[in-house]
Design a protein around this nucleic acid. Sequence first.
DNA 1: CGGAACATACCGGCCGGTCGGTATGGGCTC
DNA 2: GAGCCCATACCGACCGGCCGGTATGTTCCG
Lengths: 198, 198
Amino acid sequence: MERANGAPERGSAREAIVQAAIDCFYERGYETTSVQDVVERAKVTKGAFYHHFEKKDDLLLHIHDRFMDELLTAMEELRARQLPPREALALLIEDIVVATATYQREYAIFFEQRRNLAAEPFQKVRAKRDQYERLVVQAIEDGIAKGAFRAVPSAHVLAFGIIGMVAWAYHWYRPSGLSPQEIGRMYASVVLDGIAPA
Amino acid sequence: MERANGAPERGSAREAIVQAAIDCFYERGYETTSVQDVVERAKVTKGAFYHHFEKKDDLLLHIHDRFMDELLTAMEELRARQLPPREALALLIEDIVVATATYQREYAIFFEQRRNLAAEPFQKVRAKRDQYERLVVQAIEDGIAKGAFRAVPSAHVLAFGIIGMVAWAYHWYRPSGLSPQEIGRMYASVVLDGIAPA
DNA sequence: CGGAACATACCGGCCGGTCGGTATGGGCTC
DNA sequence: GAGCCCATACCGACCGGCCGGTATGTTCCG
């Protein structure tokens, strides 16, 4: 089976399209990117695209959905370990920073391009995002209930603050400075000291 | 000078267009919004639009630019007061949360639609954003230098963390819960405790 | 040989931007 | 203060290109 050297394997088109789309959407945004742009970057044709996807929307939805699955899986695994509150929150913060660095483009696309998704298909993704947020809130409420953290006016607002602090890294993170782990540990120490019981 | 009741005043079109654009861009994004959408919402015509603006880009640029000016002004005023580090940082955090609540749509547009601006016109806006970030970094470095805050691996990374924590509110803030001031004070107390000297 | 995986040509609509024209009102001249 | 003039502020019909999506043909593999 002598396949010409650079020729793509038959059947690999789908993932190539998704990866190309991630690049394009990250660099130029969803609406600004034409289907033609994506298929050219993926080195396939428009026919191949519409064979694998119904419409352009599906592509964005698929990227969002898979991304949320990755995040949720990591988060559920962490919760399953049943760590004491301080370690749990510290690891959670560290994990999110690492995830932000790893999935930087997907984060950017998720937060910048979600207004381009129709309301209905976005529901499914939003449910997963809500679940994600709930896990962070629970980690904090758990710590407060166990006396590991001081009481705060609102565990939800604190949780959003932590998520923001950490997720914001998608805006500025570059591999040249501190490593994701170092950044995560730094943020965790600030937060843990900040909410330590009096 | 009896002007007919509902008739818009001559010359008021420009601001009406800008406000309509902020609404549209916030709700549906820049590319998804057509110039036709904007002028219909502003109750003017396409001719009026292209009289006041050269192209669609100008609109987005104008929104970004004016927004950054508002933020920078507030920040410069705060710095001019020369407060001691702890008060300065606390007020800074509180101010940004209040600004986030006040300019929620502009924040969203700034962070979600900036990939739709060509690189060159965006330079001017980016310079202002950089200046803004620099002021936050300085507030932290100043506090560390004066011994009011403990040393951290990177003042820049900490500054970005604080900005993220606070600016993230544009995603979730709703007037029904805690007030912006309360949120700001809560975040400030966590951060100040978190970076207090050992 | 059948169906999955593509390729290619093409269409119809929308959208940014243009262009020739009109109305309004403030200032200047006499 | 009457007439004029012209800049500013708008109007609205129109165009050309691009882009999402389709329809139909072709190739490869089991």
